[in-house]
């Protein structure tokens, strides 16, 4: 969704001056500063912050209502029963909101950075440019929404009389991270198209449509469609695989495939980013 918070930028002015330390602890401190910035930004528009949470909850409720209506007329989609699909929608929302919390605004802002030439300033910073471009803003409301998604999943689990073991929870979280990595890599790759055509925002928002597929049970899909959205844009793996592990539909191969696809997407996205940044010729300067 369009985020009004994105209008306030340039967090770098508030970054403390760093001694010439390198490595993890330095990046950690920078990221902590970026977080602090985001919190400050959110507190400036408290009402808006709450309203965005309402919007996301509404859309989440809408998806659940859709499933509710479908299951008025059927008992299963493939082998998926109602509460299993509710769990799938919850998991999909959870993964999507985590992605949104860390990356979404930053990905959509990239084309703006390119268009206005503001990327210059980020390129000059003595840190990895992709790091600062990808993580500049944190969407704190998305964490609230991710929590609501977990609540829905827990309710669905109760309906299924299912109590996950500690290992299952850990494995689910691990696979969810792989899912977030897929979303981030692909969205970022799409955002780098803005180095070629400035009006790339349409494409980035278009990617939002793909989240729709991630919430559908994979068994419904077939043929080319299924192949494309498994091996090219692995939307059918992102949330289906983690949920399959919880609802006794799990195959180890699918987990391996998800992790492999996440790694592939990350590599392709990094290559795409490097090729794109070479084309950058700044604007207005």
């Amino acid at each position: 969704m369009m985020n009004p918070k994105s209008e306030i930028q340039d967090p770098k002015s508030e970054l403390p001056a760093f001694p010439s330390r390198s490595g993890f602890s330095r990046y950690f401190r920078i990221y902590a500063a970026l977080w602090k910035n985001s919190v400050t930004r959110e507190t400036m528009f408290k009402g808006n912050f709450l309203l965005w949470i309402v919007v996301e909850m509404l859309w989440f409720g809408l998806q659940l209502a859709f499933i509710g209506v479908l299951y008025l007329h059927t008992d299963n989609i493939g082998s998926w029963t109602k509460w299993q699909v509710v769990m799938l929608i919850g998991a999909s929302h959870f993964i999507q909101q985590l992605f949104q919390a860390f990356f979404l605004v930053n990905c959509t802002n990239l084309s703006e950075l390119v268009r206005t030439g503001k990327l210059d300033f980020l390129l000059l910073l003595p840190i990895n440019t992709r790091f600062v471009v990808s993580l500049r803003q944190v969407d704190l409301g998305a964490f609230v929404n991710a929590a609501s998604a977990l609540a829905v999943m827990a309710y669905a689990a109760k309906q299924l009389n299912f109590i996950p073991s500690g290992w299952q929870v850990l494995a689910f979280l691990g696979l969810a991270v792989a899912g977030v990595a897929v979303h981030y890599s692909l969205m970022f790759l799409l955002a780098t198209i803005s180095f070629w055509t400035v009006r790339a925002q349409g494409i980035v928002w278009g990617y939002y449509n793909l989240f729709n597929i991630a919430r559908m049970p994979d068994e419904a899909f077939r043929g080319v469609f299924r192949a494309v959205f498994t091996f090219v844009l692995p939307m059918l793996l992102v949330s289906n695989v983690p949920v399959r592990m919880l609802v006794n539909k799990f195959t180890p191969e699918s987990a391996v495939l998800l992790v492999l696809m996440a790694v592939t997407c990350a590599v392709v996205s990094e290559l795409g980013w490097r090729a794109s940044i070479r084309r950058y010729t700044s604007a207005s300067s």
């Binding site: 449509n209 597929i213 559908m216 419904a220």
Partner: peptide, 24 residues
């Protein structure tokens, strides 16, 4: 270009919904 992207991407969820109905 934006319009075209929107129209093309818009077809994907449409196909997905049609697949789900087929399964049902």
């Amino acid at each position: 270009f934006n319009f075209l992207a929107r129209a093309l991407f818009g077809l994907i969820p449409l196909m997905a919904v049609i697949y789900v109905w087929r399964a049902i």
